[in-house]
Write a protein that binds this DNA or RNA. Structure first.
Lengths: 199, 199
DNA sequence: ACCTTAAAGCCAATATCTTTGCTCTTTGCT
DNA sequence: AGCAAAGAGCAAAGATATTGGCTTTAAGGT
């Protein structure tokens, strides 16, 4: 669940601190899912986590930064796309896993939060990079097999974007079939493009 | 700018009330752009609008509902897509206008706000419907000319979704060329599909 | 012009969040 | 084991946000 190692240089990451970190992350996640991001306060998170509010204020600053931190740690914690033996299979499986990951209550709440981290373009960039890296891995594997994968930008536009759009706007359905259809549409449209990169 | 007529049945929408409504909308918009949605409070909006905080509390309830109301009125206030004489031209022009509309500071802030209106699926639906209606208008015009427009769902997935995704995640560029490229990609992929509806 | 009353304004009371200075605990090191 | 210091807990002060009772304004109808 990606518990720590990103907030600060962690000059003392042991026992108690780690416990606080974990308790806060879980409490915040629960409250986000129960009440939505708008209805959360630091005192509330602290109470649920069994931690002193002051500790949260000192470590994270304000609710917004806390939520952003939780959201990012969630969005960048999914696993690598499995190798299924073909480009199409890889993309289908990956798209399906991605959709599952972002359409859970925690996932969609995280998405909303990250999108709202206005001033903080870096957070959004790190979340995007995760997707780009996954796509590039799949593309590299495809090329190694002799297949011609579509440009990364195309995958972002035609698969990642629609999936995120659906989740963010609550458009049904968001199931495996829909992920699969998007991938098939992409491969049908640009069957053999090998331009080096997208974006 | 869609000032009123949606908040309540408005048993007394005249003079002073209308003035308050407009002042609050403008003040909220300004503050959102200056500080971001997270840093806004009702007292702050009231001060900027030259209105008593109590009036805002009584009319809108809380900051979240106020922001959602402002965002929705913005997102549903763009003009109808102009008729350029061809499907491709209509889609290009419309996509470009849409992108301009949502990539302004006010537009992207509204998008973030609406997306964050978690409990309120209705708000998101009304904003989506706006897009669907625009697409359907373009499709109807195309059919009247004898052209075969792509399904609404395809347009949503391949044009609306990528545009919103780019704006929400701050992916550059978000210019006319990019809107145009998405439309051309869509028309190249599904040149002559006339399935009744998408979605 | 005059009434009625929805809605705005005012102000005080209350609740809630945030900060600050301090002490206490316990980690990581020697 | 014992030490220095990072970081957690505590409590009181300070700042902000929210609510409620009441007065005042002015819109919409007669």
């Amino acid at each position: 669940m990606a518990t720590s190692e990103q907030q600060q240089t962690a000059s003392r990451p042991g026992g108690r601190s780690a416990r606080v970190l974990a308790a806060v992350e879980q409490a915040a996640t629960e409250l986000i899912c129960e009440r939505g991001p708008e209805q959360i306060s630091i005192p509330a998170v602290a109470a649920r986590a069994g931690v002193n509010p002051t500790s949260i204020y000192r470590r994270w600053g304000d609710v917004h930064q806390l939520l952003t931190w939780v959201a990012e740690s969630r969005l960048t914690s999914d696993s690598l796309p499995p190798d299924t033996g073909s480009l199409r299979g890889d993309l289908r499986r990956w798209a399906q896993l991605l959709l599952e990951h972002i359409s859970t209550p925690e996932g969609s709440a995280s998405l909303r939060t990250v999108v709202n981290a206005v001033g903080d373009g870096e957070v959004r960039d790190r979340c995007l990079r995760r997707r780009v890296d996954q796509i590039d891995l799949i593309r590299a594997r495809a090329r190694a097999r002799g297949e011609k994968p579509p440009a990364t930008g195309k995958v972002m536009d035609q698969v990642v974007a629609p999936l995120h759009f659906r989740v963010l706007f609550g458009i049904e359905p968001t199931d495996a079939a829909c992920a699969r259809a998007l991938v098939d549409g992409l491969l049908a449209a640009a069957p053999a493009v090998d331009s080096g990169q997208g974006e």
